[in-house]
Design a binder for these strands. Structure first.
Lengths: 130, 130
DNA sequence: CTAAACCTTGCCGCCGACGTCAAGGCAACA
DNA sequence: TGTTGCCTTGACGTCGGCGGCAAGGTTTAG
């Protein structure tokens, strides 16, 4: 199949597919006139890329998964390099969750304090207004 | 004080301070020779900016807080616009925490599954090796 | 024959918060 | 007087994952 069909079937754009190629993630054959030709396996690869991107991976992180698929595995996850990336990413996410939780608490406290301050100011300004 | 001193006292760079100025967040006077002159209040402002940036705010979000400080309040949080931003940001963080939690679960499952697959493959390949 | 619908490469634009020169002016000290 | 160390504006570079456009070649349908 050509680039337009793959783009449509993968739910992305031709621009994106060419970009993945420059990043070494997808490797189409070329037909006589220079058009890119993809087989079904590449559709699988593109799906893997899209899924991992949606999870928050960068293209560099995704490379091992594509290599794993291309090595003939039914899943891109099972190779050692992929597992290593999964572990690292899980740790990163855990870190980020911690920090984001701290931020949440700070925002919450800051908001509560600001509102309390405003209440107090209102009471001082017009004590019997309410 | 001039820009170098403020940068050092605020723990940032002169480039950053000039950038904040282009964004309308900091407004120094100018001395006769064109040098930027900052008073102590601006140090406070820069601290506010840095703190909120560290929490994950963008400069646009920070603008109301600076205005609030500049209006004479002891905290940048207490003005209505600031409170509105705090609410919005808290909601954004909550959303993000949810999504990140989902990502965490997916990564965890994916990792568990990959490892289980590898164990299984090992057992099939060399059943009595371990 | 021609128009439409593909395809190609190449290059600039985007977002945000700056970093990093470059080329020059001003100030203070030996 | 020269050197060092401030300061000024201006402009381009960074990172990632593309979007969008230009200028052309190819193929297919009418």
């Amino acid at each position: 199949m050509r680039i337009g069909e793959l783009a449509e079937r993968a739910g992305t754009s031709t621009r994106t597919l060419r970009y993945y190629e420059t990043q070494g993630l997808v490797r189409p054959r070329r037909s006589a006139n220079g058009y890119r030709i993809y087989d079904e396996a590449e559709l699988r690869v593109v799906h893997e890329i899209r899924t991992l991107l949606a999870v928050g991976f960068g293209l560099d992180d995704i490379r091992p998964f594509v290599a794993c698929l291309r090595a003939g595995n039914s899943s891109g996850d099972v190779c050692p390099d992929s597992v290593a990336v999964l572990r690292r990413k899980l740790a990163e996410v855990d870190d980020y969750l911690d920090r984001l939780g701290a931020v949440r608490r700070q925002l919450h406290d800051q908001l509560a304090h600001a509102i309390a301050q405003r209440e107090e100011t209102c009471l001082r300004t017009r004590p019997r207004a309410d």
